[in-house]
Amino acid sequence: MILYDAHHLPECYAVRLFAALVGAPLTLVPVDVYPGHEHRSDDFLARNPLGTLPVLVDGDTVWTDWQEMLAALALRHDAAWFPAHDPALIGWLGMARDLAASLGLARLIDTFGAPGDAAAARAHADVLLDEIERRRWFGERAGKVWVMPQAHPTIADVAVFVFIALCEDAGLSLRDRPALRRWIDRVRFAPGFIAMSGVFPPMANVTR
């Protein structure tokens, strides 16, 4: 499968990371979104009229929604990551989209000079992070290791991880959100994990 990819966007990272976690081979085609604006080129808009990244292509099938890509890859490689029977999955994927519109937007404004109201985006993200921290803390106490109740990690973990792990780029801190920091480490240490710039890979030679 071919992934049209921008290295710095969390949505693209989500697909790269998830493909690595389930062992799906991807051929990456880098798109120079920043500063090149290649996603506004005729060629790219012909592929995805929305002008968004990532875009996943498999033969005649084209996906332009990153969460749909996660689900498609899960169905093909390891359905345990996609508990479609559980309504909570809808909630978590919605939470990830809210993080994209708040934390993700504040990050693009602060770090890459995109237009928008960073303070408002950050304030929204703060509320979301508080709530996710609360859920994670009680989840931990109940022996739940991942954001969903399943014993196996899900695409919901990947979908929210890619934003929360980059929250400092958006001017947000996890200092007083200890359960989120522990869960981030748990994701980082998952077998097959890959990093993106801004997220530290587990350090080499760690015996654990």
Binding site: L174, R175, D176, P178, R181, R182, D185, F189, V206, R208
Partner: peptide, 10 residues
């Protein structure tokens, strides 16, 4: 707050 491999921050 203290789990294996992890550094807690405050």
């Amino acid at each position: 707050d203290l789990v294996d491999g992890h550094v807690y921050r405050t």
